[in-house]
């Protein structure tokens, strides 16, 4: 089939202002949007710039706005979009070139929630694993799936309003540790996510959940954190 692919273009070294460029290319319905971008870059315009690596939705490199919705280009198929496709950078982060945005504020927010396991108690006497029941493990399974692609955070109206809002991805990471029965820093993390730039900024708009390519129940996780700040109890 023939696809009309409209791509947001901006090269700070030559352009005063961003613009759109349209390409007509032959595609299979099963092609990924990433395949189309590779095609344009490889055969038509080598200057087109975007990030990618794994090409099957597990590394989190290629979050973009595809027909107005945040998604991974490698996990979005032409057949689900039709023959008119518009690709733009994700919103709320500075565009560095074409589809590449500055990820630093995103990772800075991630780092604020102490995204590492904390348990300073002695290890079990046999030196083996800290025990955890399958049920305890299941409790935080969903939020361990996050690949830090930023689809959620850059679909969030509160983040667009101000990038000092931690954003859903950082909250998902906080959830992953707070609900891990082996972790001992829940109190510290709850304090961090309760500050003014944290949970209070979330107005449960669900954009984030809709955007997550890993099907993480982002709003649910944030809801559980909110409950926690009210009840103070890890159930």
């Amino acid at each position: 089939m023939n696809v009309t692919l409209k791509i947001f273009r901006y090269n700070p070294e030559v352009d005063k202002k961003w613009h759109y460029e349209t390409y007509n290319i032959e595609a299979e319905p099963t092609d990924r949007v990433l395949d189309l971008l590779e095609n344009v870059k490889g055969y038509t315009d080598g200057t087109l710039s975007f990030r990618r690596s794994c090409a099957h939705g597990v590394c989190g490199s290629d979050a973009m706005r595809i027909n107005g919705r945040n998604a991974l280009a490698c996990k979005t198929l032409v057949r689900d979009l039709g023959d008119k496709i518009t690709v733009e950078p994700i919103l709320g982060l500075k565009v560095e070139k074409d589809l590449i945005v500055d990820m630093k504020p995103f990772f800075d927010n991630y780092k604020k929630v102490l995204p590492w396991f904390i348990n300073d108690s002695p290890l079990p006497e046999d030196g083996k694993e800290r025990l955890q029941s399958p049920e305890q493990r299941e409790r935080f399974d969903d939020t361990t799936k996050c690949i830090l692609c930023a689809c959620c955070t850059t679909s969030c109206p509160s983040f667009w309003a101000s990038d000092d809002y931690l954003g859903p991805a950082a909250l998902v990471t906080a959830h992953r540790f707070i609900f891990d029965s082996r972790d001992e820093a829940a109190a510290e993390r709850i304090e961090i996510v309760s500050e003014t730039h944290g949970l209070a900024r979330c107005h449960t708009a669900f954009n984030c959940t809709m955007a997550c390519p890993r099907d993480i129940q982002v709003t649910k996780a944030i809801g559980e954190l909110k409950m926690l700040t009210v009840t103070g109890k890890l159930e």
């Binding site: 396991f117 083996k128 493990r137």
Partner: peptide, 19 residues
């Protein structure tokens, strides 16, 4: 592998709570 577990890696668990 135990070192990874001690770093917090969320391995799946047996009914006894082991990796």
């Amino acid at each position: 592998v135990l070192e990874l577990e001690h770093y917090g890696l969320p391995f799946d668990r047996t009914p006894e709570g082991r990796i």
